[in-house]
């Protein structure tokens, strides 16, 4: 450390850069620890189970195809996938998967009583938060975009092979595939920040997670202004094959993609700023919790 300190003094003009390079190094060190835990820790089991849900279901359908009309008509498949994506993948697997991964970034270490080692290291707490958040992102994005892509391929190919090949190579299939994966990535970014903060503010995060779940499902009923304080609102307008929200939906002006992506990112940054100030004030009191 002393040698770095000397270089700071020798070249004061680069102090600013050096600080950033220190922070980047620290974020990398934190991510190395955390990503390994996220993938191979014992808490990861639940995430794998969740992630396997849609894949397992679609495998079953591939082996035992249902005889209903929808499944016999290839033209219905993009809509079928959109329904499965919205209900099962986005709102269930990604939602609860992110809930588990991101809430445990801090909450899990309080349960394990190991958070103090980070708090006793020479690292700013907002840098720590950034490292943890990014590690959650790496994990959730890898897992859930794989789930998204595999699910989409599994719904098309086993039933109508050659039609599917045409759909993906000549038709809109490939673009849709990338769009769904992109929505999944945005969802991880948005839900990640929300659940990071939920894990910081609540001792028992199950209730707030369920409330958030209800909020997201009932989003279509909310007045336009409140809709904006949610993740699903921004994602809905991106879905390539729209699913009707039912007769009760309060139709807000559908946000165009060029607005909803930055909108979601801005909400995420705001949430992270609040989380950062919370972490700076946080105390370690494992026993008293």
């Amino acid at each position: 450390m002393s040698s770095t300190a000397e270089t700071f003094q020798a070249k004061p003009a680069t102090t600013h850069d050096s600080r950033w390079s220190l922070w980047l190094r620290q974020v990398a060190a934190i991510m190395r620890l955390e990503v390994e835990k996220n993938f191979f820790g014992k808490r990861a089991v639940l995430v794998y189970l969740l992630a396997f849900m849609p894949i397992g279901l679609l495998l079953m359908i591939a082996i035992l195809p249902p005889g209903t009309r929808d499944w016999l008509d290839f033209a219905q498949y993009p809509l079928l996938f959109s329904i499965i994506y919205n209900a099962l993948i986005l709102r269930t697997v990604v939602f609860f998967g992110c809930a588990w991964i991101f809430m445990n970034l801090f909450r899990g270490e309080m349960v394990d009583r190991s958070l103090h080692y980070y708090f006793l290291s020479a690292v700013r707490r907002d840098v720590l938060m950034a490292g943890k958040y990014l590690s959650g992102l790496v994990t959730s994005i890898i897992l859930f975009s794989v789930v998204t892509v595999v699910s989409m391929l599994l719904i098309f190919f086993p039933h109508f092979y050659s039609a599917s090949v045409r759909f993906f190579l000549d038709g809109p299939g490939l673009v849709q595939l990338f769009t769904y994966a992109g929505i999944t990535i945005l969802a991880c970014i948005g839900y990640g920040a929300f659940f990071l903060i939920v894990g910081l503010f609540f001792r028992n995060p199950i209730i707030p997670a369920l409330l958030l779940y209800g909020w997201e499902w009932l989003n279509f009923l909310l007045p336009p202004l409140l809709k904006k304080i949610s993740v699903i609102h921004y994602l809905n307008s991106l879905v390539p094959v729209p699913v009707s929200e039912g007769p009760f939906a309060v139709v807000a002006e559908p946000t165009p993609a060029w607005l909803s992506v930055p909108g979601l990112l801005i909400v995420t940054v705001l949430v992270l700023v609040v989380a950062g100030s919370r972490i700076r004030r946080m105390e370690i009191r494992y026993g008293g919790d």
Partner: peptide, 16 residues
């Protein structure tokens, strides 16, 4: 914590 080291009473560790 460039200057300070603390060995706390918590007998717990990051897993693995």
């Amino acid at each position: 914590f460039r200057k300070v080291g603390y060995c706390s009473q918590f007998d717990s560790f990051p897993r693995g």
